[in-house]
Design a protein around this nucleic acid. Structure first.
Lengths: 145, 145
DNA sequence: TATTGTTATACTCTATAACTATA
DNA sequence: TATAGTTATAGAGTATAACAATA
């Protein structure tokens, strides 16, 4: 157990607050498009070409597999996603986005990934530094953070 | 509308992924302590000395005020929080943490705010840089993010 | 036997609207 | 009349357990 610097502790606090702020942004993006948070998260992870098994989506959504049934049902009812019977293993169902689903996902991605002004206003050099820092964060702490 | 740099877009993506990872961390901390996500969030915001009105908590939790009743009911049933009748305006109820609630909140805060190793391993200078960037982010994200 | 996805169940979260007690 | 909090209700999320189809 090593003692943490004041800076390190404040960084963790700031990350937490940033998470809360970002959560609000995601929440509102969902509301504006008639998607509950888990529905938006599902849409976020699905693709149009590469099928994703229900169990894999459950993993990504951090919930039990049984819940995915209902969440995907609703996306399917809105014509945003579809189930495709697996070829190798017929127990598996591959989830795919429809054209409408892909369009909505792209729209939401564009909205949620638009760089905040505080990023745009950094110098190019500072942006590269921050980018490298965040890459390191994700590489080294995926399981831990 | 200015064009975003490649770096700025990647920063937004990385930030999003990082925040998703953090969400998992919060979720697990709640589970280990028998707290649902909104219950944990409520506990997080309450204090032992300064009372918080129900409506203010609803604002912080980003949900309708009617939901706060049930959430606080459960914290109160577990002896973690208490309602105190307002003095000036008797309609208002101030929410306070009990000693047990404060202890649990501190325990969870310590756990969630422990800096990940990738932060601790940065040089002190890099930590200051990252801290300043996050401060800037939060300042401008109040209205925008 | 083990695994994928579904169904059944019970509890919680959520928004809306109607209610109460204060103001 | 307006506001703070509650209650009622209906739709959605959640975990657990039991089930069907497939491996």
């Amino acid at each position: 157990m090593t003692k943490s610097s004041k800076e390190a502790t404040e960084i963790a606090e700031l990350l937490f607050e940033l998470l809360m702020a970002y959560k609000k942004r995601v929440h509102e993006a969902g509301r504006d498009n008639g998607l509950s948070p888990p529905q938006l998260a599902a849409l976020w992870h699905l693709e149009a070409e590469r099928g994703l098994p229900m169990s894999a989506l459950a993993e990504l959504l951090m919930c039990d597999a049984s819940n995915v049934t209902g969440i995907v049902d609703k996306l399917e009812a809105r014509g945003l996603a579809k189930r495709v019977q697996g070829e190798e293993d017929r127990r598996v169902k591959a989830l795919l986005l429809t054209a409408a689903g892909e369009a909505l996902r792209d729209e939401i991605r564009t909205r949620l990934l638009a760089p905040p002004s505080w990023v745009s206003e950094l110098t190019r050099g500072a942006q590269r530094e921050l980018r490298d820092l965040l890459r390191t964060a994700l590489d080294s702490s995926w399981s831990e953070l």
